[in-house]
Lab assay of single mutants.
Amino acid sequence: MTYRVRIENADGEVVTIEISADELREKGLTLEELLPPNARIVEVEEVEP
């Protein structure tokens, strides 16, 4: 499974990243732990691999 994640950074700019569930598991991280300081998740969407 892959996630498309929209993130708002500290400057108010919204960027989109895609990350797979396998990648998260391998790194032992959650989506929140990948965020840079002062950023927030705006939207998470599951996409087909």
Rank of each mutant, 00 (worst) to 15 (best):
M1Y: 11
M1G: 07
M1V: 13
M1W: 12
T2V: 15
T2I: 15
T2Y: 15
T2C: 08
Y3P: 00
Y3R: 01
Y3F: 10
Y3M: 04
Y3G: 00
Y3Q: 01
R4S: 03
R4Y: 04
R4A: 03
R4K: 08
V5N: 00
V5P: 00
V5S: 00
V5A: 02
R6W: 14
R6N: 03
R6T: 15
R6Q: 08
R6V: 14
I7G: 01
I7E: 00
I7Q: 00
I7P: 00
I7V: 09
I7L: 09
E8T: 05
E8L: 12
E8V: 11
E8C: 11
E8I: 13
N9M: 15
N9F: 15
A10Q: 12
A10N: 09
A10C: 09
A10T: 10
A10D: 12
D11T: 09
G12W: 02
G12T: 01
G12H: 05
G12I: 01
G12S: 03
G12P: 00
G12V: 01
G12C: 04
G12F: 04
G12Y: 03
E13G: 11
E13S: 15
E13I: 13
E13M: 12
V14P: 04
V14A: 06
V14W: 04
V14C: 02
V14D: 04
V14E: 11
V15A: 08
V15G: 06
V15H: 12
V15Y: 15
T16N: 05
T16E: 07
T16A: 05
T16W: 08
T16M: 10
I17P: 00
I17G: 00
I17N: 00
I17F: 14
I17K: 02
I17L: 13
I17Y: 10
E18F: 15
E18Y: 15
I19S: 00
I19V: 10
I19H: 01
S20E: 06
S20Q: 06
S20L: 07
S20R: 10
S20G: 07
A21P: 04
A21M: 09
A21D: 08
A21G: 09
A21S: 11
A21V: 09
A21E: 11
A21T: 08
D22C: 11
D22S: 12
D22F: 12
D22H: 11
D22I: 11
D22R: 08
E23R: 04
E23G: 03
E23S: 07
L24F: 03
L24H: 01
L24K: 01
L24S: 01
L24V: 06
L24D: 00
R25V: 11
R25K: 11
R25I: 13
R25T: 10
E26N: 13
E26G: 08
E26H: 10
K27V: 05
K27A: 11
K27E: 04
G28S: 06
G28Y: 04
G28D: 06
G28Q: 08
L29R: 07
L29K: 12
L29E: 03
L29T: 07
L29H: 05
L29C: 11
L29A: 09
T30R: 09
T30L: 06
T30F: 04
T30C: 05
T30Q: 07
L31I: 12
L31Y: 03
L31H: 00
L31V: 06
L31F: 07
L31T: 00
L31Q: 00
L31C: 03
E32M: 11
E32H: 08
E32V: 10
E32Y: 11
E32N: 09
E32T: 09
E32S: 09
E33D: 15
E33P: 00
E33M: 11
E33Q: 12
E33N: 07
L34T: 04
L34C: 07
L35A: 04
L35E: 00
L35P: 01
L35S: 01
P36V: 03
P36Q: 05
P37S: 08
P37N: 07
P37M: 07
P37R: 06
P37E: 13
P37G: 06
N38K: 04
N38R: 04
N38F: 12
N38A: 05
N38E: 09
A39N: 08
A39Q: 05
A39P: 02
A39R: 04
A39Y: 15
R40Q: 12
R40N: 13
R40F: 14
R40T: 14
R40E: 05
R40H: 14
I41N: 02
I41R: 02
I41L: 07
I41Q: 02
V42D: 02
V42A: 02
V42T: 04
V42K: 05
V42N: 01
V42L: 15
E43G: 11
E43D: 14
V44C: 06
V44F: 06
V44W: 09
V44M: 06
V44N: 01
E45T: 14
E45P: 01
E45R: 07
E45H: 09
E45Y: 11
E45I: 15
E45S: 09
E46P: 06
E46H: 10
E46D: 04
V47F: 13
E48G: 14
E48N: 14
E48I: 14
E48F: 15
E48W: 15
E48A: 14
E48S: 13
P49Y: 14
P49S: 14
P49K: 10
P49G: 13
P49F: 14
